[in-house]
Design a protein around this nucleic acid. Structure first.
Length: 92
DNA sequence: CGTATGACGTGCA
DNA sequence: GTGCACGCCATAC
């Protein structure tokens, strides 16, 4: 529960992190999908903003990709992201 | 409190 | 399929 250091309410932030943590190995979800599960599918913008500024080692945020199938971005580098996804079998 | 920005998504040419 | 512009929410300054 490292991410519990978030502001009061943790409505969106907490939900997003919780969802990402629940992503099974080898599976990937899009920012839009995560935002929708978080309660606001229109917040996929905020999802990226939050993850970008708050990278948690307990959060497999590398499993969150764009809806168009692109990996999107990653605080540690897209190369790392693609490598992890390949290792997990999430992508070819 | 207001403005600017961003790991995006969708629409249109 | 590619390129450009607009819109959305949350966060940071």
């Amino acid at each position: 529960m490292d991410f519990l250091l978030r502001p009061i309410g943790m409505d969106f932030n907490d939900k997003v992190f919780n969802i990402i943590k629940k992503i099974p190995k080898g599976e990937t979800l899009s920012y839009k999908d995560v935002a929708e599960k978080a309660g606001n599918y229109r917040a996929w913008r905020a999802v990226g903003s939050i993850l970008r500024k708050n990278y948690n080692p307990a959060i497999p945020c590398h499993r969150v990709i764009k809806s168009n199938g692109e990996l999107g971005g990653y605080n540690r580098g897209t190369a790392q992201k693609s490598s992890l996804l390949k290792k997990e079998g999430a992508i070819s």
